[in-house]
Nucleic acid binder design. Structure first.
Lengths: 130, 130
DNA sequence: TCTTGACTTGGAGTTAACTCCAAGTTGTAG
DNA sequence: CTACAACTTGGAGTTAACTCCAAGTCAAGA
């Protein structure tokens, strides 16, 4: 698969794909004899994971560390497990904050919709902040 | 409440609080006659909301827009409602991605824990990517 | 009143994560 | 064989969101 096909498949730019490879977010991609990237199943799996974890706010630095450990072989399985567990905790933590914000948003939207119907915004003492 | 008390209460730096005010993420804070910030209930409510929505990935730009609309008065209630709904959608969207990443992480962690017990990492054909 | 530490401002600097660029190479269609 | 688009690299530039700094002001304790 060419870089173009991969970036179309995942809706990501070729520059980002090359950047991920350059800094080590994914291991080096398979090349044609001429030196052009030719993504194999495994390369694509790494890309997919990288995008998935980045979308969940996992820092590039952490992904680089994971790939580095992976390339050092089986002796790093403990370290990799710990890293994944740490990532899991921060994602759970972040998601909790998303839920809090959603609750707040739903409440505010509810109040605004009442205001739209009645033409009046009614605030309690604690919420003079829109 | 002084800026110090507010930043201790929310575990945020004074620089960030001043930055939020400067760019309009929150409205101008009440001051003492000498010009020093003296956060009132309402100021604090704005700070709390700003932090909450920022923690959910809402861009500063969007918060600025909201405050701007708020300050324009009741005629912007529709616009504010739409903005909040838009924010809600992106937060839901983002949370979906967090859930996908968590699922992937849990699967990987499970595999690694088996590997730690047995000393062997077993991969299926599709997951040669650590 | 003096000192000392916290506060003020405008503006410059930093960080993470891309994003763009120039100059050169590869590969396919005609 | 010749265009010519798509690829390559190293490095520079951009963006969002802070974060730091210098020079000056304010305020509480001795």
């Amino acid at each position: 698969m060419t870089i173009k096909e991969v970036c179309e498949k995942y809706d990501i730019t070729a520059d980002t794909l090359r950047y991920y490879e350059r800094v080590g977010v994914i291991p080096e991609v398979t090349r044609t004899p001429g030196g052009i990237r030719d993504y194999q199943e495994t390369d694509i799996a790494w890309v997919e994971n990288a995008i998935c974890f980045r979308d969940a706010g996992m820092p590039v630095e952490m992904l680089i560390e994971y790939v580095k450990l992976y390339q050092e072989g089986d002796s790093t399985i403990d370290a990799r497990t710990n890293l994944l567990k740490e990532a899991r905790e921060s994602i759970l933590e972040a998601r909790k904050k998303y839920d809090i914000a959603l609750k707040k948003l739903d409440y505010k939207i509810g109040r605004y919709e009442i205001a739209q119907k009645t033409g009046v915004l009614t605030w309690t003492e604690d919420e003079k902040d829109g």
